[in-house]
Write a protein that binds this DNA or RNA. Structure first.
Lengths: 323, 323
DNA sequence: GATGCTTACGATACCCGTAAAGATA
DNA sequence: TATCTTTACGGGTATCGTAAGCATC
């Protein structure tokens, strides 16, 4: 093609292979399987790319690949961007082909899926009946990973999302933990509830890493108390079940209490005991979102209109020092 | 390749063609020439890409291409990014192949090339004798364009660079205009120089758009004066020549005066007459720069080390609203 | 009529996948 | 030995360029 350029140009298949090789821990057999092609092809593509660039991208021990070289690490960053953009091109095209059809994948936790998103989802379905909504549940860590790998469009969770560099997150809403006890429980009618009183009972709350569990631990830790957590679960429904069975006092997100369905239980708000939690909405930086994805975010939090989200996604025109 | 995907994948040649088509004003014949390939290929590639994406990228009138459609405009933005990254990959490889060899292209104006860069270039050559330095001269507008098109690595100029979104610029140094007159000129020995006194004489200064000419006009404008600019030139050397011939009083950047070579002329500093100018160093956002390019910038202004420049180039991890 | 875009078609060269051989654990 | 990577080789096919056919100006 280029007269002076023997050996061919870098191509997308090579880039996909590089990315997948990192993701699959440098096992080219797996890479081939994941990309629906042959090992030999994968191997050759890597070699070709290294030859074209004139540098080794992978650290080898004999024939096995072990990791990335320094230039390899830098390259992977660029490659990730390029493949993200390749995907963006397709999303862009879909956007214009069928404005209000398509797929929207939300990655979230049980708590959000069960107690906060239903309102949003209902409104969204009315606005975009042709969009196929997929609700993936997972731990906050899994959610972050799904966003990074491009497997989900939008993530909603209380933990983690704020701390990942590739993601941008926005506050969705604030909430607090509360106690939940069987009706007639001794704690129910105490005038001034204290952690010291709570810690007398066996406790049931969320797993570590879920639904603000950290805040709960912090609260007890700061008071120098060692709670007896007899059980932990991923979601409030499970917790409530065992609280009803008398296994202990529950600590759940207060919005997980439904006065009607849960009329055998009693919620005790305790804003002075546990710090506030903020559930966040997250998207991957640089990812092209369909129009309706922005609408979804807007439904979550009316302040977050498309302009605001785009502004946070698109790299700020870095402030220009002027004299 | 992909089992379900009939018709092939987007490839880089298609992307290059799209970009070049925009640059060449939608003349596919020119595009083909620029990319060293055939018209027919160009034509087919465009068609293939549009088919794959399922949208029209270009506005056509019959067989002629006239411009971009709306999705086309969006796409071009992404394509530019991808091709920039493709280039970055190569630069990255070069970087590691031969750390201290290669090319560095500086786009700048006469004034900078002649009066401020020589020091930097000298030091740079000693540090990197194997780097081929190319100094392109042009108007500030041309400089900005060279940076945007990737034809230059670093731009140095007083105007324009600050205002272009694709570029990041840093202050290089500050300077002021001064008057230059033949020895023994009446203005030379006035105790308090005023614009009113200056405007009595025919003036010679820079062309519009060059070397702070705007500041000169501003100064006279603010004072309500209409100077008689009998001549304008691109550079101080030309101006000085005509000042020496007695055509008028010169207004030049003060660093363009050389006491030894210009001993038939006299420089009159006038910090109270003309506002300060700031010459800036600019690079294109998202462009991968070779290590020695950062060294060059550092030589210009010691405060601008690689970390500082990279920080401005790489989009800041947008501030994450936290509660 | 000149320029510019598209379609047709044959040659080249690339990419893929099978198969065999060589390394590594 | 089982797993994994590289090299070799043949078939399918995408890309390229020439050339002819058609719009547009």
């Amino acid at each position: 093609m280029n007269p002076d350029n023997h050996g061919v140009e870098m191509n997308f298949q090579q880039l996909r292979i590089v990315r997948e090789t990192v993701r699959r821990n440098f096992n080219l057999t797996e890479v081939a399987a994941a990309l629906f092609t042959s090992q030999s092809g994968v191997s050759k593509h890597i070699k070709d790319l290294e030859d074209e660039l004139g540098i080794e991208l992978f650290v080898r021990k004999g024939k096995r690949l072990l990791g990335l070289t320094e230039p390899g690490r830098e390259l992977v960053q660029i490659v990730e961007r390029m493949l993200l953009d390749a995907r963006n091109v397709k999303a862009l095209a879909d956007q214009f082909r069928k404005r209000d059809e398509g797929q929207l994948t939300i990655a979230t936790t049980h708590t959000q899926a069960r107690y906060t998103l239903p309102r949003v989802v209902l409104e969204f379905r009315q606005l975009f009946p042709k969009v196929h909504l997929a609700l993936h549940q997972g731990s906050p860590t899994e959610i972050a990973s799904m966003l990074q790998l491009g497997e989900a469009d939008i993530g909603v969770a209380t933990e983690t999302l704020g701390g990942v560099a590739e993601l941008v997150s926005f506050p969705f809403y604030s909430w607090r933990h509360a106690l939940i006890v069987p009706k007639g429980h001794a704690l129910a009618d105490r005038p001034e509830l204290t952690l010291e009183a709570v810690v007398e009972y066996p406790l049931i709350t969320y797993h570590e890493g879920f639904t603000g569990r950290q805040r709960v631990d912090q609260a007890f830790g700061a008071a120098g108390l060692s709670p007896d957590i007899v059980m932990s679960a991923l979601d409030a429904d499970v917790i409530k079940t065992y609280v009803a069975l008398g296994l202990g006092v529950g600590i759940i997100a207060s919005m997980a209490y439904d006065p009607e369905r849960d009329d055998h239980l009693r919620l005790i708000e305790a804003p002075h005991l546990f710090a506030q939690n903020v559930t966040r909405i997250a998207v991957r930086r640089g990812r092209f979102l369909r129009g309706y994805a922005y609408r979804f975010i807007e439904l979550c939090s009316p302040g977050l209109d498309e302009a605001a989200v785009r502004a946070a996604l698109t790299p700020p025109q870095a402030p220009d020092i002027d004299v």
